[in-house]
Design a protein around this nucleic acid. Structure first.
Lengths: 222, 222
DNA sequence: TCAAAAGTGTTCTCTTTACACCCATGC
DNA sequence: GCATGGGTGTAAAGAGAACACTTTTGA
């Protein structure tokens, strides 16, 4: 079956930059392309927009297909549409980024994806299409947004220590923070509560575990 | 001539929210639709993406066709793509917003546009499609961005008084500012220089005219 | 001389930054 | 008992907010 229009139409995909924290590093999910073009190269997960779904729904579906997660933070980033960005035909990509906590990853291999893996944002392989540009834009947006909102909390698992949260902020912002100032600030926001449990993982004092009071909220705080 | 694809493709337009300051108010350019759908209703200027131009180039072309201006501040805002937003077929709109100074307006009537006019953002008519949503998003973005960057200067003519600049900030932010604090802040940024000329327009002391040192720059300042 | 907008400094408050030592634990 | 990360308070500096009067002009 074919589809015919009076004027030329571009194809439209959504591509998603899925961030998580793993092994003390900020990581993104990449998939190895199974078909041409860029066969065998790493790329962002994504796929073509269906005519009966909104763009948001498309991104959410792709995210679910790649990682199995739903109900996570997902935000439209930017639309990329330079003329030569796909060698096959004119393709626009509406890019999104998602933040998922390290406990939610399941990595069920998608249909098109021969392989999927988490990559440290600092040491990325060569990426297909203009996906390096998309990823750079996503990193910038994440860093900017973490500085004035509570999105950062979306990267955390259900229970976490303040040190691990601080490491997330340091990774995203690219600079180290003062422990006392960070704790004063984050606790002063009143968004966290103690679980009462403690976390031991080495020859040192165990850390208090905290949780986010209302994880569905992302507030502007500055 | 027709265009045929193996999978269905959406149509893609750019729509532009063109802001300016006129009569002491923040205004947007609206055009009256000459054809169906929404014939006779006001809408944002915009048009279909050509296959040989980038999305940015399309927005810039539409802006030029509607207003005659070029080399103005233009930024991608968001991509709107709900399923029913255009009754004809599936249409995505990559929305942009532009800031032009009140001296640059020429308003040459476009091809499709029977009529074009500036509307105060506070008193808008009913708009075609989901253009009210687009406009609301543009207002929010402009207000947010003016609070942490120097985009506001893009709305000014070549020479302007500090009072008129302050009025722009008050209009965008929706609250009145303190004259002394505003002057201290804006002059402290070092982005403005005195022209040496003065502007008289009533029975009161004339105001110093300033200009922007480097209008092509838009800096993050907070 | 009056009305109207231009122009000008200081004080207070709050936010942000800088900074060093004891605590609890595993080995 | 020692190495390791967890946990805590205070002072200084800087940024933002509050606030009132004099100046210059046209009518």
């Amino acid at each position: 079956m074919t589809y015919t229009y009076e004027y030329p139409h571009p194809a439209v995909t959504t591509d998603i930059v899925i961030f998580t924290i793993l092994d003390n590093a900020l990581k993104v999910l990449l998939v190895k392309r199974g078909g041409e073009p860029f066969k065998g190269q790493w790329a962002l997960p994504g796929g073509f927009l269906r005519m009966d779904e909104s763009i948001d729904a498309c991104a959410r579906r792709e995210l679910r297909e790649e990682t199995g997660v739903r109900d996570v933070y997902l935000e439209q980033l930017y639309t990329f549409g330079d003329v030569g960005r796909d060698p096959r035909e004119r393709v626009l990509s509406v890019a999104y980024y998602a933040l998922i906590s390290s406990t939610e990853q399941k990595l069920q291999a998608g249909d098109d994806a021969a392989e999927a893996d988490w990559y440290d944002v600092e040491t990325l392989p060569n990426l297909a299409f203009d996906h390096a540009d998309i990823l750079a834009a996503a990193k910038d947006r994440l860093a900017a947004k973490m500085a004035y909102s509570t999105v950062g909390l979306q990267l955390m698992p259900d229970e976490f220590t303040l040190s691990s949260l601080m490491r997330v902020y340091e990774l995203a912002g690219g600079k180290i923070l003062d422990k006392r100032n960070f704790r004063k600030w984050i606790l002063g926001l009143g968004l966290l509560e103690e679980t009462g449990k403690k976390w031991s993982e080495g020859p040192h004092r165990p850390a208090m575990l905290y949780r986010v009071r209302d994880k569905s909220r992302v507030d502007i705080i500055r």
